[in-house]
């Protein structure tokens, strides 16, 4: 069983925070197939949040095929998120470290790098949406 926590200053919608914490726990192996998620009342009683928020997070996870409701019992893990293969992070990290060295050499500081990545991410999302 896992416990959720909320970062109210993150700007990420609470239902997404809950869904992401489940996805993360699945990737890390903290949650495995047949494990039960906390009931809506348990989450609500602990975090003092709207039950609809928890329901929405669980529905989202159901839609992704990660969990399934069992009538009268609760919500259980049925799958794991389709993430990149384990070696992918190492490989990508190598490329990123080289890129960061380039960026620093070109005179960008950490803050401008973060801003640059954020705007580029958004632009490319908008290009593919347009």
């Amino acid at each position: 069983m896992i416990e959720f926590h909320l970062d109210t200053r993150s700007g990420v919608a609470p239902y997404l925070q809950i869904a992401r914490q489940v996805q993360q726990a699945l990737r890390m192996g903290t949650l495995q197939a047949d494990d039960q998620l906390p009931t809506v009342r348990e989450v609500v009683g602990k975090l003092a949040i709207n039950p609809n928020t928890v329901l929405k997070a669980y529905r989202e996870l159901e839609r992704e095929g990660l969990v399934a409701g069992r009538p009268g019992q609760g919500t259980f893990v049925v799958g794991t998120p389709a993430g990149p293969p384990p070696g992918a992070y190492t490989r990508l990290r190598g490329g990123l470290v080289r890129w960061l060295r380039d960026a620093h050499a070109a005179g960008l500081d950490d803050e401008s790098i973060v801003a640059f990545v954020t705007t580029t991410l958004r632009d490319s999302a908008e290009e593919s949406a347009a």
Partner: peptide, 26 residues
């Protein structure tokens, strides 16, 4: 919120501060 989860009751809460209610209201 426990009562809302248990009974499905509709609720209206007034406040002059939205921060108080942000997590509980939809």
């Amino acid at each position: 919120m426990d009562a809302v989860a248990e009974t499905g009751i509709s609720v209206v809460l007034s406040s002059h501060l939205i921060a108080d209610l942000e997590r509980v209201c939809d």
